[in-house]
Amino acid sequence: MEQRTRVYICCSPHKRTGATTTARLLTEYLLFNGRGFAGFDTDPHEPDYGARFPQAVTIVDAAKVEGQVAMFDRLLVHDETPKIVDVWHRSYSRFIETMGQIGFMDEARRAMVQPIVLFHADATSASLAASHALAAQWPELGMVVVTNKGAAPLGPDASDILAQFPSSRRFAIGALDASSRACFDAPDFSLSRFLQAPPPDMSIVTRTGLRAWVAPIFTQFQTFELQMSMQAAQFL
């Protein structure tokens, strides 16, 4: 069976849940593996994701039709280049509404495009309700529930909270220690470059912290891709 072109939609209706971090991590994972991608940042005011990858990420205003055309038309191109969308929390509702208005899911199916929503959970009931609304609107939508312990820790009841979300697929992103976090947040820091050749002047503790943090994340991405490929495989 032909592989569909994947569109990763990193989103949450709330701020500080780590959606941009996930978009960055996915991007770095692809770059580290020598693969191309096309990214979209729907925060036209402070586009952190777009600013980090200016050559490959398009900054769009999802509230404007021009921005929607620039993004959704490209997302529906079956070119086997993974797409990554960092959905700004303020544009979340508009993004989902537009998906419905333009019949995005139906067209994606026809165009051999596979949208995968990386829904960033937090402990609020509104987050849970938003995930269920998405699943109810598009039961066929691939959803992965992402928890970022550094950005939006779910606390001691994490497993009970997660059990209520409508997807059993999970990505878990751990918390970074303070010095590694400062390094990761630096505007010119590239994780993929770091993994290929760590700067010699970087503290060994920071290097170790970053490597330990990113290894399980990349493993999850790799496992997920393998699972997707196996699902699409004609022969097993």
């Binding site: 055309v69 959704f72 038309d73 529906l76 537009t98 208005q101 333009i102 019949g103 995005f104 067209e107």
Partner: peptide, 11 residues
């Protein structure tokens, strides 16, 4: 034609 615009017209 743009898919987005076609989608709006369809809706």
């Amino acid at each position: 034609h743009s898919f987005v615009l076609r989608g709006y017209v369809r809706t």
